[in-house]
């Protein structure tokens, strides 16, 4: 029998290493890797629309070539701030092989941990305007009316934003992986 999950909260900040939110940090594992630099931001809110200032977001992504851990260490962690916001600096991932011969659109997986989450939530950030979004095998499983909750918008060149709504109106689509 697998080990049960328990909430990470409320004091998970003992494993908060703020530099991990910058995947391109000087002296870090991706220092000097070429690619399109982006920032991924978002605000985490609860069922009342109140911000969650005590969440932890982890990301997992492929490198610009679409490969995992082949020259790009695609892991990051970021605490939400007092406004419930997270911010990662990274490289835009390339398309990733999907089931069969399919190709997945570029995406970043997010895992959300917080007080009150008995186990972490998983979702994905896709990039608005990406042609492959139309044929992505995972997006295709998401009801069309809710697909938008997985699509990050480009707020300014290179700055992508995807808000996470844990509950209620426009609730983020979470993935059962």
């Amino acid at each position: 029998m697998i080990t049960a999950s328990q909430t990470s909260g409320p004091f998970w900040h003992l494993i908060d290493f703020p530099e991990w939110a910058d995947l391109l940090r000087a002296g870090g594992p991706n220092d000097g890797v070429a690619g399109s630099r982006i920032t991924l931001t978002g605000t985490v809110t609860d069922g009342d629309g109140a911000v969650c200032p005590d969440a932890m977001i982890e990301i997992w992504q492929a490198g610009p070539d679409g490969a995992y851990e082949a020259g790009f260490h695609g892991f990051g962690r970021c605490a939400t701030d007092a406004q419930g916001r997270f911010r990662f600096a990274t490289l835009k991932p390339g398309p990733v092989p999907g089931p069969g011969n399919s190709l997945q659109a570029p995406h970043i997986t997010l895992a959300i941990f917080a007080r009150g989450l008995m186990h972490h939530l998983t979702t994905r950030a896709y990039f608005a305007g990406e042609a492959l979004n139309e044929t992505d095998p995972i997006l295709a499983l998401v009801p069309e009316g809710r697909r938008g909750t997985l699509i990050a918008r480009e707020a300014s060149p290179g700055h992508w934003n995807l808000d996470i709504r844990l509950q209620g109106d426009h609730e983020t689509v979470f993935l059962d992986i």
Binding site: M118, Q167, T172, F174, L175
Partner: peptide
């Protein structure tokens, strides 16, 4: 106020 209302998409 933090648990999703919707079932996760498998």
């Amino acid at each position: 106020k933090r648990h999703p209302d919707q079932a996760p998409v498998r």
